[in-house]
Design a protein around this nucleic acid. Sequence first.
DNA 1: AACAGCATCAACCGCGTTATG
DNA 2: CCATAACGCGGTTGATGCTGT
Length: 279
Amino acid sequence: MGRQPCCDKVGLKKGPWTAEEDQKLVSFLLGNGQCCWRAVPKLAGLLRCGKSCRLRWTNYLRPDLKRGLLSETEEKTVIDLHEQLGNRWSKIASHLPGRTDNEIKNHWNTHIKKKLRKMGIDPVTHKPLYPAPPLADGGSPEQKVPEEEEEVEEKSSAAVESSTSTCAGHDVFCTDEVPMLHLDDIVLPPPCDVVGDTAGSPAESSSTSTSSSGGGGIDEEWLLPIMEWPESMYLMGLDDVDMVTTAAPAMATSWEFEDPFNAYQRIALFDHHHELTWA
DNA sequence: AACAGCATCAACCGCGTTATG
DNA sequence: CCATAACGCGGTTGATGCTGT
């Protein structure tokens, strides 16, 4: 007996979320915490299935999420963890505070995979795609990768290089900086751990960044309010309903944007307001 | 300016796992 | 122990935006 797809129920909405739906879901979850997802849509007044609500919240609306491209460090961490864990995206995500499994999975499929292939590395096995040619024909023992291999950005090759030979003259990132955990001790690191270096440079845009670059620019400014959301707020349970309901109207006022994506701006605004109100 | 092809990512689908009666 | 329900995860899809011609 197969299970019925949860969203096939008549009247349930599918597809992109509207700002109004986001608002309802956030208000409800901030006010009541995460209980059983099955009940959430009903209680929050949404015509969605619980699964859809959970996904929307975990991948998009959670106040502790970071947005924007993965930093070089994060990318490197993902590569290393992927080598150890395979496609266990949620496990990988648990090492990168503020990042979701979906986000990492997408980033892997769209960016990292290509990068690795370009560098002649099999993204599945993390081993060289092209076996080293025999020394007999006079070629160099190092692996030779055709054509575009040359144009691989130095930073990328350095990043991957460092996964096998730690810290090979690369001052942007060194595996020593991100201690690898074993499967046995998968524990969420303190939120500030990786967050700090993410405020640096987005992976692809400012490729010239070094460890000393202060150039978060717009991204940094934009992310800051979100990253500073007190963890207690996110973890808030039913005990804190009063606090939330006090602030809820403030949040509601910041929902007036048209673009549904601006939920983040809304949350940032809410956060800002919340700091002012609750300080 | 218009079109086509490509890249990105939010959201969905379905399966495995866990919880509950 | 079994059946069922709910949750969580990973793979995939499709809408949208971007880039090149």
